[in-house]
């Protein structure tokens, strides 16, 4: 189904009622969804750099001075998208029972000897960007490394916006 831009904007804001959202979930997907979402997001962000790919609720891969970098909607720049943006975050490690029980009732959270919680914040706006539940000493997980050129060139049949 063809979902119009206004509906998509309301969907992104979490304002669609279930009877509006259900047909979008269960129907055939609109083939130009990516372009419509990109247009909405480019209008929404406060920075001027061209978005190459939305990476996260708050993070975008953008083109800046010949580089492809990860940028938060608050303006903070995390650097090269090929390097895990989490390594530029501020991180709170909840590795004590008290700190886990701030979030979960007693007995309903992990035992920090077995697993800790890591909260990754944007260093500028301190939005919570990711939570990892991992055993102590587990390497930071690099969740998604997109192949931007293949996506645009082979799948969409056009050059990426920074190579147009």
């Amino acid at each position: 189904m063809d979902v119009d831009k206004k509906t998509l904007e309301r969907m992104i804001e979490g304002n669609l009622k279930w009877d509006e959202l259900k047909p979008i979930i269960s129907g055939r997907k609109d083939q130009n969804r990516f372009d419509k979402i990109m247009e909405i997001l480019q209008e929404k962000v406060k920075f001027d750099e061209k978005i190459l790919l939305p990476l996260h609720e708050h993070l975008y891969i953008v083109a800046k001075e010949g580089q492809r970098i990860v940028k938060c909607d608050c303006g903070y720049e995390f650097g090269d998208y090929k390097i895990n943006w989490k390594t530029k975050c501020r991180i709170r490690v909840r590795d004590s029972i008290d700190s886990i029980e701030e979030l979960y009732p007693k007995f309903m959270g992990s035992d920090p000897k077995w697993e800790e919680l890591r909260e990754y914040f944007c260093p500028k706006c301190f939005t919570l960007l990711d939570v990892e539940a991992v055993p102590p000493g587990y390497p930071t997980i690099f969740n998604f490394l997109p192949d931007i050129d293949t996506f645009y060139e082979k799948w969409l049949g056009r050059n990426p916006p920074d190579k147009e």
Binding site: R90, I91, R92, V93, W114, F121, P136
Partner: peptide, 29 residues
């Protein structure tokens, strides 16, 4: 509290690495 209780990535890295190198892990881990 997020600002006050969070670490830089470098501080976090040192903090976590010590758990591995100083043998502070529980046996299951």
């Amino acid at each position: 509290e997020r600002k006050e209780k969070s670490l830089t990535f470098e501080e976090f890295w040192e903090h976590e690495r010590k758990k591995l190198t100083e043998e502070r892990l529980y046996e299951s881990v």
